[in-house]
């Protein structure tokens, strides 16, 4: 699904990623953990195509294609989905209009027919019920007046509707209480399938009690410094990131 090789990236001359390697197979769930500033969010933005980063070395291959040849919206249509850590509010664009426009735009890009309004409404009704989202919420502007939990659930609703192949969840647990976390995790787990891969970025282990990863990677100073199974997350929870912070200092 995804192969990242020796990725170096910087922002305004400041190196953030320094030789990152990562391979995510089809159907696998990988967790990326690490201290603040290790480059976790940068990786998620680079995968989705945000233009603020300079790639100085390395490659990303997605489903066999060079990811850097694809625009932001082409990547989305090809199945890459980033659930944002801080979903922004966009006044004036109704959430429902946005969902329908996004879904149909992706279908058009893929050469499929647009969904009719009744078919779309049926789909939305089904997906919102599962995430405990009130339909009135979708008549509002994107994320405007949504609570922290509602914003995260709205991200997961988009993911459920767009049915991506590679889901990247950037600190989806941040700012959620335990009930909201459970609801979001259930939503994510429903989307797990042998055809769909996931990258779960998190600072804390608690999300991984709900979304059990196949692999866990520790990111520090812009590269993967350790990989292991789900037990690695438990170890990090117990010992913290102190030893990896040291490596960061050494690297710098």
């Amino acid at each position: 699904m995804l192969v990242i090789e020796n990725l170096h990236a910087e922002v305004e001359g400041e190196p953030i990623l320094r030789g990152l390697n990562l391979e995510v197979g089809t159907g696998e769930v990988h967790a990326i953990m690490g201290p603040n500033g290790s480059g976790k969010s940068t990786l998620s933005y680079i995968l989705s195509g945000k233009e603020d980063y300079d790639i100085t070395q390395g490659s990303i291959t997605y489903k066999g294609d060079n990811l850097f040849d694809m625009s932001i919206d082409e990547r989305a249509a090809a199945g890459i989905f980033l659930a944002f850590q801080y979903p922004i509010e966009i006044p004036g664009v109704a959430a429902m209009t946005f969902l329908k426009t996004a879904l149909n735009a992706q279908r058009i890009t893929r050469g499929e027919d647009e969904l009719t309004t009744p078919a779309f409404m049926k789909l939305v009704k089904e997906k919102t019920a599962a995430l405990n989202i009130r339909p009135e919420m979708l008549r509002r502007s994107i994320n405007v007046g949504f609570s922290g939990g509602e914003k995260k659930r709205f991200e997961i609703l988009q993911m459920a509707l767009l049915e991506p192949s590679l889901c990247i969840l950037d600190e989806t647990d941040s700012g959620l209480d335990i009930d909201a976390l459970q609801l979001v995790a259930e939503g994510v787990n429903r989307l797990r399938s042998p055809e769909r891969s996931m990258i779960v970025i998190t600072h804390y282990q608690r999300l991984l009690n709900h979304i059990i990863p196949d692999r866990v990677h520790v990111l520090s100073a812009g590269k993967v410094v350790r990989s292991g199974g789900k037990e690695l997350a438990m170890e990090l929870e117990k010992n913290g990131y102190a030893e990896y912070e040291d490596q960061k200092i050494n690297a710098a």
Partner: peptide, 11 residues
């Protein structure tokens, strides 16, 4: 613009 494009809406 980025948020909308990241959901597949062309520029």
């Amino acid at each position: 613009l980025f948020y909308l494009r990241a959901r597949g809406i062309p520029e």
